[in-house]
């Protein structure tokens, strides 16, 4: 179980990227974080991954307060971030240093099979297409069997068709060990395809606006009516989240004006 308690992050330049985030993600749950640009989604993932420090509040994984990168947490960045000097299979094996050679090879070849890149095992990353590179980076995160997997818009740079095929690769990897997944996305369809719950965020300061359960049965039929309905629900929430900030400062200003008046 991953939980956030009064989590806030203010950057050195005073930007309030996150303010008072409270959320509980159940074990094995897939949560999609959706929200406009700059509402702190990446910041939240970086805090969980231990790449940045929170300004206030805390994150717990199964009760343990996180401080710094945790071995049970893996992350897939928006760019593949493969190490260009390692072959595809060595990239996948990057986090498996502690294991025996046999175990390492077994895991890597299994992952290669899962992502359909067996014949590319010995190539350099630069010889792969963008979608293939992103698959390798997903495999690199999965082979360590993380309890929590963080995905920051991993498919946003890809075309719709490649994206759909990567969704399947991702779900088939997820089926095996059922890690907790926090997925950042701009794509409502993607959220409804993959997630058990959509968390809609709002900027300035970054906070949670709404949570919507997505309880469709898996595998999900993207053409069915329930899917359409869910997409529309999330879109509506997203719409409100984008409109609300204008309403709120207005009220705030009125109150300040009133205070001055008196």
């Amino acid at each position: 179980m991953l939980s956030f308690e009064h989590l806030s992050k203010t950057y050195a330049d005073g930007t309030r990227a996150l303010s008072d985030i409270n959320l509980i993600v159940q074990e094995g749950e897939i949560v999609a974080l959706i929200g406009g640009s700059g509402c702190g989604k990446t910041t939240l993932l970086r805090l969980i991954a231990g790449l940045d420090r929170e300004s206030a509040g805390q994150i717990r994984l199964d009760g343990e307060v996180l401080s710094g990168p945790h071995p049970a947490i893996g992350i897939v960045f928006q760019e593949p971030r493969l190490l260009p000097w390692l072959s595809v299979s060595d990239n996948i094996a990057f986090g498996l240093d502690g294991l025996s050679t046999a175990e390492r090879q077994a895991r890597v070849s299994h992952a290669l099979e899962k992502i359909g890149l067996v014949e590319h095992a010995d190539r350099w990353p630069r010889d792969l297409s963008g979608g293939q590179q992103q698959r390798v980076s997903i495999a690199r995160a999965f082979v360590t069997n993380p309890k929590v997997l963080l995905l920051d818009e991993p498919f946003s740079a890809l075309d719709a068709f490649t994206r759909a095929s990567l969704h399947e690769h991702l779900l088939s990897l997820w089926e095996e060990t059922r890690p907790t997944v926090v997925l950042v996305t701009h794509d409502v369809q993607e959220a409804v395809t993959l997630a058990d719950r959509a968390v809609v965020m709002q900027p300035k300061p970054g906070r949670i606006f709404d949570e919507l359960p997505l309880t469709l049965a898996r595998p999900r039929d993207r053409t069915g009516l329930p899917f359409e309905t869910s997409v529309r629900r999330v879109l509506t929430a997203l719409d409100h989240s984008l409109k609300a900030p204008q309403a709120q400062p207005q009220r705030e200003r009125d109150r300040q004006a009133a205070a001055l008046w008196w």
Partner: peptide, 11 residues
């Protein structure tokens, strides 16, 4: 920095 972060993530 992005590659260095990969190293940090894998501790």
């Amino acid at each position: 920095r992005k590659l260095v972060e990969v190293g940090h993530v894998f501790r």
